[in-house]
């Protein structure tokens, strides 16, 4: 288990905010989706995000539902690439919240995990999520990520056995990404019942921050998720709005409704 001395920037930041009683909010954006896509990052920070997930689009997003598939394709059609996106990021002023890149392992392997992590570090990225890199294959990345100052957060799923959850928690950095449902990313009508049980099982093996993702799309769902986890990841609900033409201001308003829901939930006696 990591302690405060070895914890990286993402973990320290999230722990500090969690310790104030705040519900954590990590919105996602597919990088390169529009010419001025980094404006979304500013809007997210202004809406009270605690971390921001920046998706590097991949041609074959096998764990994503239609919304993020479409967003990835749209970004690639616009000519988005890892190199261009990281260049865009390095030109940004400090947003005050850690940036966490998410992408598929093929893009990490392309120049090799070490070069990839170093490039992330140079662009000011602090964390990394690779949904098709499960813990038993992750050594190749985790070893070099630490040297480059990148914190790879691992995913845990409702189908993960308890022993394996402990293993995931041991190797995860920054936070543990709890996949709320046996499914792909995408908006859902209700928070899956598996979410509460999974979060509770993760808590038994770690005190790393636990963020719940996949399908969280409304203030009510965020509020409910907050009852179990330290915070939420919101992806498809953001990207559907972006695909429908919503600009940074509209996304800021949307995220503020989630922010408020999370804040209300933590004001309640727990």
């Amino acid at each position: 288990m990591t302690n405060a001395l070895t914890a990286g920037a993402v973990e320290r930041h999230l722990r500090a905010r969690r310790d104030t009683g705040r519900g954590l909010l990590m919105p996602y954006v597919t990088a390169g989706i529009t010419p001025g896509w980094t404006d979304y990052l500013r809007a997210f920070a202004a809406a009270g995000a605690d971390a921001i997930e920046v998706g590097l689009p991949f041609s074959d997003p096998t764990l994503d539902g239609v919304t993020i598939q479409q967003a990835s394709q749209a970004a690639l059609d616009r000519g988005a690439s890892t190199r261009r996106i990281l260049t865009d990021l390095s030109g940004l002023p400090d947003l005050g919240v850690p940036l966490v890149v998410s992408t598929y392992y093929n893009l990490v392997l392309h120049d090799g995990p070490r070069a990839f992590c170093e490039a992330l570090g140079r662009a000011g990225v602090a964390g990394l999520i690779v949904p098709d890199l499960p813990v038993h294959e992750a050594d190749e990345l985790t070893d070099v990520a630490a040297e480059a100052g990148i914190e790879p957060a691992l995913l845990a799923s409702p189908s993960t056995p308890q022993e394996r959850l402990a293993e995931i928690a041991r190797h995860s950095r920054g936070f543990v990404y709890a996949v709320s449902v046996m499914g792909t990313t995408g908006e859902r009508a209700a928070l899956a019942a598996s979410a509460a049980e999974l979060t509770e099982r993760i808590r038994r093996v770690t005190d790393l921050p636990v963020l719940l993702g996949f399908g969280i799309s409304t203030p009510d769902q965020a509020r409910e998720a907050r009852r179990h986890a330290d915070g939420v990841v919101v992806g498809a609900a953001v990207m559907r709005r972006v695909l429908d033409g919503a600009g940074p201001d509209e996304l800021r308003s949307f995220l503020m409704t989630l922010r408020q829901a999370l804040d209300q939930e933590c004001d309640r006696p727990r």
Binding site: P134, E137, L154, S157, T160, I168
Partner: peptide, 20 residues
């Protein structure tokens, strides 16, 4: 071990499919 054929193979599945 770990489903390797030399340097290839492995189980690069999303966590939700690892148990399956």
């Amino acid at each position: 071990t770990r489903g390797r054929f030399g340097a290839y193979g492995g189980r690069y599945a999303p966590e939700s499919l690892v148990e399956a």
